[in-house]
Write a protein that binds this DNA or RNA. Structure first.
Lengths: 214, 214
DNA sequence: TGTATAAATGAATGACTATTCAGTATCCTA
DNA sequence: TAGGATACTGAATAGTCATTCATTTATACA
């Protein structure tokens, strides 16, 4: 059975690499793939374990329960997001450039990994409780960054002065999030970041910075 | 036990009214409340039945299975949405007024019933399969209406002429959807439609119609 | 009122699966 | 190499719950 062989070989080779601590990574990678394909509730812990090449019980050495896998998935992804984002935003001259960069970054990073995108755009939104957690802790920080850029732009006169920065930030996030979800749902394999210039034009229009489209 | 009494009394009085066909309505109403509070997967068919004042098995005389309850919930809500929307949009003079009306209507209708809003903004997005269904069939029509307004505005010179109507429509929807979700997640009991003028200003800016902010 | 049809009931069924834990393998140190 | 600590295993457990269907109850009509 070649298929199972591949899994085993893969499992062992990775184990050989750094047996102990990237086992957690392996579990998260396996969970990403399985949950993206079947959905969170239809994915049993057993199939995640099988794909990761570990026993069912091993999962519980690394995660308190099934839900914590989902949380960790998001935390890891957001960590990478922020890491890649920080420096790219730092050296930019003005709020217009920064907002453009945010659009580009958001679409590029979401567009990088479809399985992960399915999780962030669909599976992660499972329950009110869950969404609240994420929303408050993690996305809140991201919204804060956008709001900061909006405030900067308004102060410098590049954007409309009468903006509520937080409301505008939510609107910007809404646009980006919808683009991401739409891309996930459309099975065509376009590149998400290809839309960035046009989306940036829309978003800049929203805050009152009237540049030409792209 | 006064609480259970109330349920029974309520149940029977409604049964008396038009026993046969609003039983389906009763089940949907019960499902709305229970699913909004506990989430879809934590809500058993039994508790929906109990709140509706029917037996478990009765549910299956009206719905093929549990998932169909959720689908019907959405279909019913969207039906009302469209019904209320059609005439309000009809008599409006130009694309700016129409877009304003869409913003107002969307926020007003979502803001009308928090339980229903929890379902549309959170519980309905449970699985890729599910979202795809909804997205394609139902929301697609709504997006089409918005895109039509955008195209009209672009043609008449009120909006930017270089807009891709469908992309702009998705952006508009993204803004509205994010406002709705944000309202659902924030426990404060503000009125969602209070934000309509400010949101409309953002949305109009996005399509290049530069009016003053409300 | 009696009978046929339709509607409603709710206990029983059958599947599914998150989590545990007693036992096994592996690693490390002296 | 012993033997203690650590990591891993996977079969068994303990629930949960959607769905069915043999009965019962209501309705319509003669």
């Amino acid at each position: 059975m070649p298929w199972q062989w591949l899994l085993l070989v893969n499992g062992y080779s990775m184990m050989a690499r750094r047996s102990s601590e990237d086992k957690k990574e392996r579990i998260l990678d396996a969970a990403t793939v399985e949950i993206a394909r079947r959905g969170y509730h239809q994915t049993s812990v057993a199939v995640i374990a099988r794909r990761a090449g570990v026993a069912d019980g091993t999962i519980y050495l690394y995660f308190k329960n099934k839900e914590e896998i989902l949380v960790s998935l998001f935390t890891r992804a957001l960590g990478r997001f922020i890491a890649q984002g920080k420096d790219k935003l730092a050296g930019l001259p003005d709020a217009v450039a920064k907002l453009r960069a945010i659009v580009d970054l958001h679409l590029t990073l979401v567009g990088q990994d479809r399985d992960l995108a399915i999780i962030t755009q669909v599976e992660l939104r499972h329950s009110l409780h869950f969404l609240e957690e994420l929303s408050r802790a993690q996305v809140g920080e991201y919204l804060g960054v956008i709001a900061g850029v909006v405030a900067e732009g308004a102060a410098s006169g590049l954007f409309r002065r009468d903006l509520d920065p937080m409301l505008a930030a939510k609107a910007v996030f809404g646009v980006l999030d919808e683009m991401a979800t739409d891309w996930v749902l459309s099975r065509r394999n376009t590149r998400l970041e290809a839309k960035a210039p046009e989306v940036a034009a829309l978003v800049l229009g929203m805050v009152g910075a009237n540049g030409p489209a792209a």
